[in-house]
Design a protein around this nucleic acid. Structure first.
Length: 271
DNA sequence: CTTTTGACCTGACAGC
DNA sequence: TGCTGTCAGGTCAAAA
């Protein structure tokens, strides 16, 4: 479900309720996420004060006193602040109960998400250390993309989904940014010019910022930390719009299976 | 090394 | 109504 804008929206939603609070207890109803929730987290997190809630790519990092919880929402995960007494749904797998009486509740029907614990620098964790630059950070640019992808043959849509190249972009925003840049998702990365990569980097940043301003995209069940949906689905130009008219030229939007995921594009606006 | 494929899970939906 | 097949916001690990 969640890409960078949804994870960042979640981060902003929970941060004021979590930072400075002390963890009273951790309740794991089902530890079987993508990886088993470590017993160490249940043992060590209670009693610790949450010092910060940060994001790297699609990962959320809750820093305590002696370690950091690493959280990923996978395809169907969501994280909400609720009153600790609120009854849990069948897919509410973990509660991090705070001294305020609130609790951070992790819901994840498909269990592709993760909740891990590290005592070391989380940015050096196996899952995070190979991540590419933040697309909204200073070290992401058209020249960066050009340098990395020049001479390669992958479809550009697939390259944008590769978190080692750039962190946080998923299928929605890869397709939307490619539309904004006028590049077909199937285009081989080696056939894109330096100037086009400049436009693509700009389009990625602009698309992510607009999605953030809209509170993310809610296709099915995304909710921010307070349970409210996002609104960027109203602004989607291609994702999920097969056979609907292009908002720019009216040509029907096409869907094409690329690997395991569907790519969407306007055959007239994107070359 | 680069790129593709399979696997992990459940729910929603289309079609028969 | 109920069954089957397909698809979904991710990404690691293994194969090609």
């Amino acid at each position: 479900m969640p890409e960078l804008p949804e994870v960042e929206t979640t981060r902003r939603g929970i941060e004021p309720h979590v930072v400075g609070r002390t963890v009273a207890r951790v309740l794991v109803r089902n530890p079987r996420l993508r990886w088993r929730v470590p017993a160490k987290l249940v043992e060590e997190l209670p009693g610790q004060t949450i010092r910060s809630v940060t994001r790297r790519g699609k990962y959320l990092l809750l820093a305590g006193d002696t370690g950091t919880a690493i959280l990923h929402l996978g395809m169907s995960g969501s994280l909400r602040v609720v009153t600790a007494t609120q009854p849990a749904d069948p897919y509410d797998h973990v509660d991090i109960v705070l001294d305020s009486g609130d609790c951070l509740r992790l819901r994840d029907p498909r269990r592709f998400g993760a909740l891990l614990w590290t005592r070391a620098d989380p940015l050096c964790h196996k899952l995070l250390r190979g991540l590419g630059p933040e697309p909204l950070g200073a070290d992401f640019s058209g020249d960066y993309l050009y340098g990395k992808l020049r001479g390669r043959k992958r479809a550009i849509r697939d390259a944008l989904l590769d978190s080692r190249l750039v962190a946080g972009i998923g299928n929605i925003y890869a397709n939307e940014a490619l539309f904004a840049a006028g590049i077909r998702p199937t285009r081989r990365t080696g056939k894109i010019t330096r100037a086009q990569y400049g436009r693509l980097a700009d389009a990625i940043r602009a698309t992510l910022k607009r999605a953030l301003a809209a509170g993310g995209t809610t296709l099915r069940d995304f909710r921010n930390g307070r349970g409210e949906p996002g609104y960027f689905q109203l602004s989607l130009n291609v994702y999920g719009r097969e056979d609907e008219p292009c908002r720019v030229c009216g040509t029907p939007i096409r869907a094409k299976r690329l690997g395991q995921r569907t790519a969407f594009y306007c055959p007239k606006c994107q070359k």
